[in-house]
Simulated assay, not measured.
Amino acid sequence: MEPPVPLALAEAVPRLPQGRQGTWWYEPKFDGHRMLMVRTADSVRLFARSGRMVTTPWMDLALAGRALPPGTMLDGEAVIWQDGRIDFGAVQARAASSVDRSRVLAARLPASYAVWDVLTHPDHGDVRARRYTERRRLLLDLLSEIGPPIQAVPATDDYETALVWYEALRAQGIEGIVCKRAASTYRAGRIWQKVRHADTSEADVVGYTGASAQPRTLAVRLADGRTVLTQRLPAALAQDAAAYLTAVAPGPPATTTAGDTYTTTTAELVVEVLEGTTRHQVVTATRVR
């Protein structure tokens, strides 16, 4: 199995799902950049959710990944801790950095890789068709002798514990809780559920300005039905969005609710936007979802 790999995603829901113990598993939602780590026979390669290779700015994680046995592919989140809290601004700065700059940033604030799934296992091959609980056991066994900065995310099947995590871990920069059915396989699409603190929301991308390979802004449809342009995209976010936009032919021009012209797209792309900005004409997008 070679990247890019279609990733499992999570659908936002208002509350934690609850059932008989063991039906649902809950994991803290880390605030970083989604990343696949692929350990081959002679190297480690890192990929963003879009399929773009991002090994260079995260070389400290790539070097740590050499401790993994060849044939391993992991799914997780690259995060950076500062003063006991996840610092998403530091993650964005690293993702957009040059080779030399990334070395300076890594020396100052090393990255961590919070892993929640294993897609290929050195002894079992492609394990995506196995149950979540089976993949979880394989993941914990695989990482048992690896240690930081590569670590499995905590997980529990206890609803009350998940509620405590949701409230208590927010101070550490944890976004919320991701909920996964114990029997679920790993497959593309929004197969998980997530309950998040309401600092951000998600918006469908319906178009862009500039070139598809280098979009300046995105046209997004908000929950209230308005179509608006985002602020100018940071370099890393523009690259992630471009991977989706260039995969389909550009559509005809259209206009936002405010009358701004943009190029439409049929790309299946969702971005996270800051809640506090959605009441205004220009919206701040923070990452691809």
Rank of each mutant, 00 (worst) to 15 (best):
I174M: 00
S50Y: 07
G173Q: 08
M59R: 14
V282H: 15
A171M: 09
R108I: 10
Y262V: 05
A182D: 12
A48W: 03
V153L: 06
A241C: 15
D204L: 14
A249W: 00
R196H: 01
Y262P: 04
W192K: 03
G173P: 08
R130N: 06
H197M: 07
H124N: 11
Q193E: 14
P17E: 04
E268F: 01
E202D: 12
A182T: 05
D100K: 13
S201G: 12
A267S: 14
G251P: 11
W81T: 01
S98W: 04
G176Y: 03
T217L: 03
V13M: 02
T265L: 05
Q214E: 14
R101M: 13
T55I: 12
H121T: 10
L109K: 08
P6I: 08
V288S: 02
L74H: 08
V44Q: 06
R66K: 15
P14A: 05
A78D: 07
A93T: 11
P69A: 15
L237Y: 09
L46N: 04
T277Y: 13
D75P: 07
F47P: 08
L222G: 06
A213M: 04
R108V: 13
M35Q: 02
D83K: 13
L68E: 10
G189W: 11
R170P: 00
A10M: 06
S50D: 11
A223T: 12
M59D: 13
A48M: 04
A203K: 05
R216W: 03
D157M: 04
V228C: 15
A10P: 03
W58D: 02
R135K: 07
Q214P: 00
I177D: 04
R136Y: 05
V79Q: 03
A155F: 05
D75M: 07
A258W: 07
T266C: 03
E268P: 00
A285Q: 06
S112F: 09
R136V: 02
D60K: 04
P149A: 08
D31Q: 06
E272Q: 15
R181C: 01
W81M: 13
G76E: 05
L269Y: 05
T277Q: 11
A114S: 13
V178Y: 02
Q281C: 01
R108G: 00
D60L: 08
S112A: 12
R52M: 10
P110M: 05
Q231M: 08
W58N: 04
A64P: 04
M37S: 02
K29M: 02
A12E: 12
L9T: 06
S144P: 02
R66L: 15
L138I: 02
T120I: 07
S144Q: 15
V104N: 01
W116L: 07
S43I: 00
R94Q: 07
R181W: 04
V79F: 03
P57E: 05
A267V: 09
D126A: 11
P28T: 01
T209F: 10
V282D: 14
G225Q: 12
I174G: 02
L9A: 10
T185D: 10
L119Y: 05
T55V: 11
H197S: 08
L63C: 06
W116S: 03
A219D: 07
A254D: 14
G71S: 12
L139Q: 06
T266P: 00
D75F: 00
G251S: 10
